[in-house]
Design a binder for these strands. Sequence first.
DNA 1: ATGGGCACCTGGCTGC
DNA 2: TGCAGCCAGGTGCCCA
Length: 271
Amino acid sequence: MPELPEVETTCRGIAPHVSGRLVARLAVHNPRLRWPVAADLPEWAQGQRILGVGRRAKYLLLTLERGHLMLHLGMSGSLRVLPVNTARETHDHFDLEMDSGWTLRFNDPRRFGSLARIEGDPAAHPLLRELAPEPLEPGFDGHYLHRITRRRRVAIKQALMNSRLVVGVGNIYASEALFRAGIRPGRAARSLTVQECARLARTVRQVLTTAIRHGGTTLRDYVSAEGKPGYFRQKLYVYERAGQPCRRCGTLIRQRRQGQRSTYYCPNCQS
DNA sequence: ATGGGCACCTGGCTGC
DNA sequence: TGCAGCCAGGTGCCCA
């Protein structure tokens, strides 16, 4: 599922419902996620106040009084705000019930998502400490992109999806940013000029920002905290458009495999 | 240091 | 109708 825009949309959607609330109960219905949910997590979370919610890369971080809860939506996860008594559905994994009578409900068919506790500084956590800077924060620009790709022989598309180089960009937005920058996904990362890196940094930011404005992209499973799909799919230029005409020049969009993932591009607009 | 490939899952679709 | 095969928004880990 979820790349940065979908996680950010979820984060903004749940924030007004969770900030300041007390955790009435953490009910784990199915602990089998990417890592099993720790058995003592419910006891630990219960009664703590939720001080705020944030995002780092594709992780959601709930700040509690005595630590953080770290959530990942994996490929197919979604987090919704529902009345506590709402009937459960298949693949509902846990409920973070609040004193307001509402619950944060996590559903994840493919079970690549996760829920874990962090004690101490989240930035020092093993899953977070090696992450690259945020693409929507100052400092992510052409110079940064140019510098970190100098010794990279991998394709630029794979470099964009490497969370040690750039965070938040997954399979959809990597293809889309490269289209908007006019750069072929198969180019060696180190072959990009400063100008191309500047263009690409701009389109990465642009495509993520615009997607957030449209509530993200829904292909199959993703829904926001309110249960609504994202509408950015209608704005996609290349992703899942193989064989269809390019929306800029009419040339047929091509699909190829890169690192076991599908990549889409326009052979005329991108070089 | 870098990069390739696999693993973890379920479900939906295609084609025989 | 059934079933095999393939594909899907992520990413940690092992190996070369």
